[in-house]
Every structure is written in C-alpha cells, then in structure tokens.
Design a binder for these strands. Sequence first.
DNA 1: CGGAAATAGTTTAGGCTTCAACTTTCAGGG
DNA 2: CCCTGAAAGTTGAAGCCTAAACTATTTCCG
Lengths: 169, 169
Amino acid sequence: MTPPDTHVDAETALDHAPAGHKDDLRLWLRMLSCARLIEAEIRRRLRINFDTTLPRFDFLAQLERAPDGLTPGEISRRMMVTGGNVTGLAARLEEEGLIERRAVREDRRAVTLRLTPSGRREFARQSAAHEDWVAELLGGLSATDRGALLRLLDRTRRSVRGAISEGGA
Amino acid sequence: MTPPDTHVDAETALDHAPAGHKDDLRLWLRMLSCARLIEAEIRRRLRINFDTTLPRFDFLAQLERAPDGLTPGEISRRMMVTGGNVTGLAARLEEEGLIERRAVREDRRAVTLRLTPSGRREFARQSAAHEDWVAELLGGLSATDRGALLRLLDRTRRSVRGAISEGGA
DNA sequence: CGGAAATAGTTTAGGCTTCAACTTTCAGGG
DNA sequence: CCCTGAAAGTTGAAGCCTAAACTATTTCCG
C-alpha cells in the first residue's frame, strides 16, 4: 500500500552541501517530532485530568511566580506571545475565577493580573501532576543522558539565538 | 476517577528520586523553549519570504514525497493532526491552486490530493530556503554535537513512546 | 442477501494565535 | 499649555487545531 518512499539520492546532494545541510534538517525534524510528541501528551493529560489547556497552564504558572501580579504586557513578553492573545486568555481565566484584574494606581492604562486563592489551589494541583508526567515521560533516560542532553540543548539555543540576532534573513 | 495523587512530601521524595523529578522538568522546559525558538523563527521567515505558514509547508512536503498523491486520512496520520484539520488546510491550498483533488475509483468515499505543477514549483522554492534556514540556525553546533544530540533525541523519543504506550495516565 | 460495524471525509463549535487597526493614557518638547 | 509620539491594552479578521457529531460508503459476517 505505502509506496517505498523513494528517497532523494542523498549522496549527490551531500557533495555540494557544506557538510551539515542535510544533517541539520534531520536533527531539526527529530527535535521537532520529539518535542511535539511530549507536548501532545501533556496537552492530552491536561485536558483529560483537569479540563484545561497548555496555554492556560503556562499562564497560571507565570502568575504563580509573581505574587504581586503581572501586567498583560509583562505576561505577553514572558510567554512570548502577542498582547491580543493574553487578552483572550485572561478573559477566560477571569471568567472561571482563577485570576483577577486590579487597576494600577500610577498608570490608568495598565492593569495587573493575579491568581485568586482558587486559582492558586487549582494551579498547585495541576503543577504537581505536570511534574510527575514529565518525569514519567523522560524516565527512560539515564542521568548521564539527561545531563548531556541539557548541555547540548543549551548549545543549540545559543546557536539559534546567535543566528537570529545576526543575519536575521 | 483520577487517583488522589498523594504527593510524597518533599523530604521523602528526595530520598526516592534523588536526581530525577526536577531535573526532568528542567530538561523538558529547555527542549520546549529550544524547539519553540527555532519554530517561531521558521514561521516568521515563511511568512515574510513566502507569505505562507508552517502547516501549509508541511502539507506540501507530504505531497511532494508522494508522487501519486495521498488521501486526507493518510496526510492526517503523517502530520499527526486531526482529519478536520486536513479538510480545512486542503480547502485553502486547493483554493490557491497548489494542490488538486481527484476522485478514487475503487472507493467512492475517498479522494486523493496531489500537488499541481504550480504547487510543486512553489514548494521547491520554499523547501530550498527552509533547508538553508535550518542549517544557518544550527550552524553553531559541531559535527560531534549534532551526532550526540541526534542520538539523545532518539532515546528521548523512545522513552516517551514507551511511557505513553504503557501507563497512559 | 441484509444489517451491524468500521472507515473516509466533512461539518460545527470553540479555543488558541497572529497581525493590524484602534482607543486611551502617558511623556516630552515647543 | 498643546501637540506629537510612544506605550498599554483591546478588538476584529483570519488561520490553525481539536473533539464530537454527522453523512456516505464499504466491509464483515450470519
């Protein structure tokens, strides 16, 4: 049924490429599939166990670390998403009573968002389970592998950041 | 339903999981941020240079590898997204003339999607640029690092798959 | 044959995400 | 003081994505 997946003649391509091109692509695709696999599983469990989503979870996590609350703008920067996105998430979370808005005295444009007691309780439950899930999913790695992977990912991030800040094609 | 997830208190936990739990979380967060960083940059460049998106690009990539076309169901499995999603993407890509639908003789429920000549040309352009981008972003890694990372990610994927197929909490 | 079950694909409702346009407010220089 | 520009936040349109319900067809098997 499935065709033999006629692969491009890799050898020929490699002759011209400066030693990496194709390998880099393979590496990226593997990292992507790996990250997506984990992410999908975590999303699935958040939905099944807590009837919530990853963005909501991340949002609460940001507020948990900021006892005095955060402005939408600050959350937007920390989560690396747009402001409009934060508006929508905040609306739903407030609707559910997990966060609350509070006006800022010194700047009437701004507002701070913070966890309600209920939100704090709920996030604590979710956070504990989340931590267990990750440990379960990565449990097959040895301590050595974990350390090596952490270091390599750090180098990767530096490589990417460097490339972005420079050329930025 | 869900077990109370009785959390071992911190002391006991440390005894049993000396170097796992928290480290796994750190590892996962780093992998996630790394993958998202790359993905965001690729999305940005696809939008700026080709006025397209990553899902569209992935969709065309699947069809490129299948000269005889694919059914929506097959694409859905390969891209690991739902069928409804494929319906929407296919509609837009057909609208733009990049792919075409063709009825299947033997099964009147099914349809095959394939690249049009225009779609094939367009994807070739995008694909070449995409490959260059990835090589540029990962260019800071040595050949050794790349190899090690590839191997570690493979182990990670196996660990995750194992955990999912087993417990599946 | 005939009906139950499975499969292919679409549709719908709702959440996530972005970009661009917009409103309100603040800050600085004439 | 006023005007211009920047900043905080919201809104709207459009695309992406999922789960669930639905239609149409095929397959299985009794």
